[in-house]
């Protein structure tokens, strides 16, 4: 960082896994203790990701990927956990590890 006089900042995302949208149709039993009165035969059709699902990490990563691309970040070809953006002379790097992010920029 000292070489190019860059700033570094670290962050992590709260309840990241609950933010992912599911691509598959998943049905889940109703919760113990929160049964719908008169609708015991119904099941929960999931829209958002939950802890414990097989696709939770992927759903979260997809969501983050779409968001970063929407703000003009490009995914590195060599390493899919690195995103790069350039505005004029200012370069931004983001390194992703599940819900931990490191932001680096030379401004």
């Amino acid at each position: 960082m000292t070489l190019e006089d860059m700033e570094i900042h670290q962050m992590d995302v709260k309840i990241a896994f609950l933010n992912g949208k599911l691509e598959e149709e998943i049905y889940m039993e109703q919760l113990q203790g929160f049964m719908h009165q008169g609708g015991e035969h119904l099941v929960c059709k999931l829209h958002n990701s939950l802890y414990g699902l097989k696709q939770s990490p992927r759903a979260w990563n997809q969501k983050l990927d779409v968001f970063l691309k929407s703000i003009k970040f490009m995914k590195s070809e060599a390493d899919p956990s690195v995103y790069v953006a350039q505005v004029g002379d200012v370069k931004f790097f983001i390194v992703v590890y599940v819900d931990d992010l490191i932001l680096v920029c030379n401004d």
């Binding site: 609950l18 998943i26 049905y27 889940m28 039993e29 109703q30 919760l31 113990q32 203790g33 719908h36 609708g39 035969h41 119904l42 099941v43 929960c44 059709k45 999931l46 829209h47 958002n48 939950l50 414990g52």
Partner: peptide
Amino acid sequence: TNNTWTLVPLLVDRKPISCKW
């Protein structure tokens, strides 16, 4: 509030997954 799921009748050929607290 996150609108995580909606209650629907189960399709015949599907088995719901379980969950726990």
